Amino acid sequence: MPQILVDHSADLDFDRAGFVKEVHRAIAEVIDTTVADCKTVFRPAVQYAVGDGTTGQAVVLVEIKILAGRSPEQRAELTARVLALLESHLAVPAAIGVEVTELERATYRFVHHPGR
C-alpha cells in the first residue's frame, strides 16, 4: 500500500534503484506491510530553488503515504530511517525533507488494473 513520492532536482545524480530497494525494505520493517506492496514514483523538477536560489543546491523531498493507524513513534522512525537513507545516497549538497502522511482507510482505494 505505501506510496512513495520523490520530488527531486532533475539534474541530481543519485542511485534511484538502490534507494528504492532500501526504502521499500525499511518501510516493510517499520510498519505492517510488504516490500511488494510499496510503490515509488520519482518526479524530477526542472525548476527548483533553495533559499534565494543562488546556492545551486539540489532538492529532494520525499512523501510516504501510508494507511492511517500507525503510531506516532512508527511514523517518526520511518521518517528518520528514510532521511538517513537519502543522506547515504546523495553525493552532493542538497536540501532534503521527508514526510510521512496518512491516508484514510475509509476513503482510500488501490487496485492493480489489468489493462485491456
Rank of each mutant, 00 (worst) to 15 (best):
A80V: 02
L61T: 10
L86P: 11
P44I: 05
F19I: 06
D13C: 11
V100L: 04
V23W: 05
Q57R: 15
D52N: 07
L103E: 06
T107M: 03
K39E: 02
V35C: 03
P114D: 04
L103G: 05
S71L: 02
T33Q: 06
V59A: 09
V30P: 08
E99D: 06
R75M: 14
V23R: 10
G69C: 03
V82S: 08
L90G: 00
V6S: 10
V46L: 08
H89W: 09
I64H: 01
R43M: 10
L86H: 03
E63Y: 05
A26R: 12
L103T: 01
S71K: 07
R105W: 07
M1R: 10
P2D: 05
G56Y: 09
G115C: 01
A17Q: 08
A91V: 09
Q3K: 02
A76M: 13
V98H: 13
A94M: 12
D15K: 01
E22S: 11
E63P: 00
F42V: 13
H112V: 09
T107Q: 03
F19D: 13
P114K: 04
R70C: 08
A95L: 11
V20W: 06
L83Y: 15
L78A: 04
F42K: 07
A68Q: 08
L103S: 06
V82T: 11
S71Y: 02
L90V: 00
T33E: 06
R75N: 15
R25D: 10
F110H: 11
D15N: 11
